[in-house]
Design a protein around this nucleic acid. Sequence first.
RNA 1: GCGCGGGUGGCGAAACGGUAGACGCACUUGCCUUAGGAGCAAGCGGAGAAAUCCAUAGAGGUUCAAAUCCUCUCCCGCGCACCA
Length: 705
Amino acid sequence: MFGATYVVLAPEHPLVREITSPKSEIPNKDQIEKYINETKKKTERERSENKEKTGVRLEGISAINPATKEEIPIFIADYVLGSYGTGAIMAVPAHDERDHEFAKKFNLPIQYVIDPVTGDKQENPKHKNKIVAVVERGGELLTIRWPDELGGRLLIGGTANEEEDASITAEREIREETGYSDLELVEEAQETGHHSYFAFSKKTPTIAHCRMLHFRLKSDTRVPQKLEEDEQGKFSVEWVSKEQAVREIHDDLHQRAMERFFGIGCYTGDGVLARSGDFNGRANREAQRDIVNAIGGEMATQYRLRDWLVSRQRYWGCPIPIVYDPEGKPHAVPAEHLPWLLPTDVDFLPKADPPPAGKPINQAPLASSKELKERVTKIFGDGWTPEYDTLDTFVDSSWYFLRYLAPKDTHDFSDAALMKKWLPINRYSGGSEHTTMHVLYARFFMKALYDLALVPVDEPFTERYNRGLIMGPDGQKMSKSKGNVVNPDEFVEKYGADAVRLYLAFIGPYNEPRSYPWSLDGVASMRKFLDRVDRLFGKVNSGEISDSLNQSLARASVKVAEDGDRFKFNTSVAALMVLVNDLEALETIPKSALTQLAIMLAPFAPHLAEHLWTKLGGDGSSTALEVKSVHQQSWPAASITVASEAEVVVQVAGRKRGSLRLPREAGEAEVLAGALKIPAVTAALAGSEPKRVIYVPNKIINLVV
RNA sequence: GCGCGGGUGGCGAAACGGUAGACGCACUUGCCUUAGGAGCAAGCGGAGAAAUCCAUAGAGGUUCAAAUCCUCUCCCGCGCACCA
């Protein structure tokens, strides 16, 4: 507020209309009207494009800044939109990019009221007055190159003597550190940067209050440098390009100084208030409310809402139950004629012929339906016409999940008790281009319905998953024009639905939005895998499951289920493949092992799993006629028995040098003794004793040297 | 510009901070076969004869130990963009 140095009204603001009315005596009325007319020609979109700022001052009138009580000028400018908020702004050019640009162009005062604060806050800091000087010669900046551990490249910095003017400090520091003495002060920043840090040598928490100055070197005149003892020979003085300086200087305040003088110039970050009357020294965010109260204002939240044009000239979308009478007036279709269904006798293709000159034509697909026209004529009479536009599909996708709970209810849009039971939806999953918008619209619908007390929760989804995108075999997004479209139906035809389904599960992690090229060999390899599974079922025996087979089954059971729960279907399938590899090593396979495999396979290859399950006669607990589906079985119970021995990896200095098989209960001393017998370990130790031993039981031992 | 994701072999990928590359594709070699877009066996990140060394976009940092955590940079995808 204290930084507001002018006011801008949108050209279409009602107050502007008053000002330009015939009885107003504003001197540059013509100029203003001309600007307003020019603005009218632009769309909101054009006005929103980032280009050079334009505007006109309303001469003869001014505003009062309620915080500073100062008179400030009023402008109209098209970068302020009438449709947003109040259509009027206080402009703070020091802390807003657009205002800054405008102020620069119209030479308006820029008052900095937020001082940047950087670094980590320290307790009981020592305060120091410092400077940072940006010295420019041509396009180059004067820098000091310290060794990296002492700060690397920096601008000229220094500490002020008591009560000394910042420009005096700066000129002295430049002279003493670099020898350059013929300088011209271009600008001293109004604001002071505050940086908290630990002073290197003394370990003292410190806050530097830093003035920022911009100098131009007038000549290369140099005097001898005057360095402290500890500075001698430690750094070099270098001129570098602005780009290099920005890249290589990492100190926050030095960066800020360059941005201040060579960048946009305004400061959009947070900090402490300055030049703000009683509020000086307070954090800007936290003082906001108090400032607003002090000047008699009110805090208001401005929601960013724009009109949503929901009609589309498309077939896919709900038809709009509106009809027009012979005069063209719209009427709602009465309830007894609902639901208002989409016609099916529709021409989807765009009209080949251009419309006759000067004649509006309706190219919406619904306009080609004879049935829809007849329907309207029959119900409402001659001369009545239907609405041909349909609703944007976002309208229906914003609440279909509510309707799904009670799709046949002819009275209510959903079922209150069921909504209470099922909402909110646990997991929303969709493609990334779509989800941002959809989540926006669906949440908006939900919140509106919640305000109307029609739904029990105001947020529709608790978690959002982004799926990846399946690309063409060339790694490009599938498109007809690129000719890289893969039609899954062809693969279903050739390899079967199970193979395609399995491939889609295996192609990559479901919930990581990457792109997955459709590999032409991928589905074939899944079919091969399924063929291998099929062959296993020909090796059935009536024996018992061995211990090691039981372990294979148990590992698969746990892994497939766990990874399935976290939507990592690719590793679930991999775990099944590992199990199948294990089973293939056996001459014959106990029937009970195969039933377990069939159950685990069922979610991924439901058809083959059911086929094999039936062939085996189910789990044998019922007669063949009563066999229940594989999909009705419970998941195989896993009993992973802990092996009596564990493999312990031996590292020396964090690198693997070998491994040991030892009883699980072996203690650290025993593991260490075993480790020291490994030749590669003794070689890596090269005779020295391990300085420290990190032992993670039954997993790893690391000998630190 | 702002916001949200992501970057690991030739490819898709795997990896509670603890052996980088499981599983699969492609490829190589061999076996079997009248034949194979079938099957079986072995190999397969890079360098090296080997020991070993180097590798998870790049540069720093934290840690006994980093693909994984932190800082900065680059690249790719998506969304939004004069919204005060």
